Each structure stands twice: as C-alpha cells, then as structure tokens.
Computed example of a mutant assay.
Amino acid sequence: MTITAEQRRARILDLVRELGTLRVVELAERIGLAAVTVRRDVAALADAGLVHRSHGVVSLPVTETAAAGPIGRNWAIGMLVPTVGSYFDEIIDGARSAADAAGARLLLGISAYESSDDRAQVDQLLDAGADGLLLTPNWKPGSHPENSTWIEDLRVPAVLVERRAAPDSPFAELDSVGSDHHHGVLMALRQLSSLGHDSVLLAAREDSWTAYQVRAGYEEATRLLGLDLHPIVDIHSGGDMEPVATQIAEAVAGGVRAVLVHNDQSAIQLVPLLRARGLRVPDDLALISYDDVFAALAAPPLTAVAPPKRAVGSAALELLLNRLGSGHDLPVHHVELMPELKIRTSCGSADR
C-alpha cells in the first residue's frame, strides 16, 4: 500500500519525538523506505521548522528539545583521542564531567598516534551508537590532513578537540575547541622577559600537534617581544635527553640564561642533566615547562604553561550537545581557550 508524503512525514515526526536524535538511514530502515525519499521528506520538514537536520542527523527543534528535558539526555557521545595518560586524561575528564551533568554517555576510542587507526576507532564508536563525535585525529603537525577524508562522510555531527583545520581544508567548517598554544608561549616568554632575559631558548618535541603549535608560537612571540630568536633544540621521541642538555649548556656558555621546554616529562629529565653540567635551575638557568601535567612535582617545582585541558573537554562536549540540539541553526564555532602561567620556583626572580 502506497503512503502519501504527508503520512511519511508524520511518521518521521513521530519517530523523532519518540526516540530523539536519529540518523536519516535509521529513519529509512524503520519506515521501510529508500533513504533518498526520507532525505527529501526530512528536508521538507526542516524547511517547515518541524525538525533540525545536520550532517545526516535529524533532531527536534531546540524549543521541543528543551521541553523534552535536559539537552544531553540519552545521547551517546563518541570521543577519539590519540592516547590516554598525561595531557589527554584531563581533557577526557572534562568531557566526562560535562556529559554526566547533561545526562549523556561518553564512549572512548584510542587511536594510538597512528592515523590509520582513526577511522577504525570511529567506525567502532558509531557502531556502538554514538550520536555525535569529539575528534582528536592524528594529523601530522603542519600538514594537510590527507588521511582524514573519511571525516567528510560522517553521518553524525563532530567537534575537533585540540585540533584546528587549515582554512583551505575541507574540514574548516567543523566546530573546534582547543587551547591557544601560541598565546601560551607568549605568556612564558613575556614572564622571562620581565625577569630581565632578552634571549630565551626553546627545546621542544616535534612529534605532536601541540609541539608544532609551541614551535610556531615561539617564533611569533620572540618577534612580538623583540627577543633574540635561536634555532630550536629538537627533543626526539626516543627519550635521550643527553644531547638536549649538551646543546642547552652550549647556549648558556654563549650567553643564554632562560629556556622554555616542551613538555613536562622532558623538562623534569633535563634538570639533573643540566646540574651534572654545572648548571643549577633557577640560579644559573631560568626554566619554564609547557603542559603542566607533572611540573609541580619536579625538584625544584617548575613554572609551567598550563593549557586549560579540562575546560577544553567540557567546552567541546557542551558544543557538540548544542549542535545536536540546534542542528544547522547554530553557526560554526572555532573556540580557543587561554592557557594559564603557573609561577613556581624554576624561573627565578628579578633579583636573581
């Protein structure tokens, strides 16, 4: 028996009101019609203001959603991260707290810093029923995300977390929430400059998105503050900090008295290696760490740039829930949160 367009659309409305957010393909399966037909009906309903649609997802208008209860109720949110431990633990914790407060459920996928794993992990999250995604894809620092074209085909809304697509990227229209690492570096160098340093060395990793942002921020901050720009001391992923300590000691012999180190683990390893070379922190060398995960536990405690990790996770989760509730009526958000500078012992004082 053939049903009319009005009957189809009434059935779509009934299902969305009963079950909440649904994908178009799920609607088609439940109604027993071709997805292309349902997609046209959803478009007509959206034009009439009866539903919202975004990235293949259909939901109630925000007014009906608000009347139905908390915005996150019964939604499952998939979260893709490149690792657990250290930095991302706090981001996950922020997202989990926001999800709990909203009545949503967080599902975690870990892609182990291998871009080839991203899609498999996301597919697993979608199969588990994720209605939206928080994505930290394994993009190579400074490069176009060529291995992430699958993101364009996602059937649910997604928010980038601690990632920002280039303006000419097909992913520039995605929502994103992250830390303003450029400003974090500027805060560190401004503090050292206020202590009388006109020359600051950067020792940094080169294998992560944050490391790339710190490196770019260093060049920008030295220019803005009128500081001497030095070649960056590379910290390789193998973990051997002896060559790094040697290069820093050579820079000190050349007149440098301050260093910014990315990240905490590297900075903590450096302190005794520098001491073995006759350099004490902060007496002979002011040191600031970047990340502030373990910096307060060092001996001496390290002054550190602290990206707002928990706040990033919370803000990303809340933005995604707003996207699920508001659909295409919500403009694309590119949110950058400001780090803090936690002053401790290792950067010394103006009267050193």
Rank of each mutant, 00 (worst) to 15 (best):
Q7S: 15
R9H: 13
I12A: 13
L13H: 04
L15Q: 02
L15N: 04
L15F: 11
L15G: 03
T21Y: 02
E29K: 10
A34P: 06
V38H: 10
R39K: 06
G49Y: 02
V51S: 01
H52M: 06
R53F: 10
V57R: 15
P70H: 02
G72K: 04
R73Y: 15
R73V: 15
N74V: 12
A76G: 11
A76R: 08
M79F: 05
L80D: 05
F88L: 08
E90W: 11
I91L: 03
A95K: 09
R96I: 08
A101I: 05
A112H: 07
Q124L: 13
D131N: 03
L134F: 08
L135R: 08
P145N: 12
N147I: 15
W150T: 00
D153P: 02
R155P: 03
P157W: 01
A158D: 05
L160Q: 05
E162P: 14
R164E: 00
A165D: 02
F171R: 00
E173Q: 14
L174A: 05
H182L: 09
H183R: 05
H183A: 11
L186T: 02
L186K: 04
M187T: 13
L189H: 01
S194M: 10
D198L: 15
L201S: 08
L201W: 03
L201N: 03
L202N: 00
L202K: 04
A204V: 12
Q213A: 09
Y218P: 02
A221C: 12
A221Q: 01
T222K: 11
R223E: 04
R223N: 08
L227T: 13
G239A: 05
D240E: 03
D240N: 06
M241C: 08
E242Y: 13
A245Q: 08
Q247K: 12
Q247F: 09
I248S: 09
E250M: 11
A251G: 11
V252D: 06
G254T: 09
L260N: 07
N263G: 11
D264S: 04
A267Q: 04
V271A: 01
L273Y: 13
A276R: 06
A276T: 10
R277N: 07
D283E: 12
A286W: 02
S289V: 01
L297P: 12
L297H: 15
P300K: 02
P307Q: 06
R310T: 01
S314N: 03
A316P: 06
L324T: 03
G327T: 12
L330N: 00
L330M: 11
H334T: 07
H334V: 00
E336A: 14
L341M: 07
R344G: 11
R344N: 13
R344F: 12
T345I: 14
T345L: 14
G348V: 02
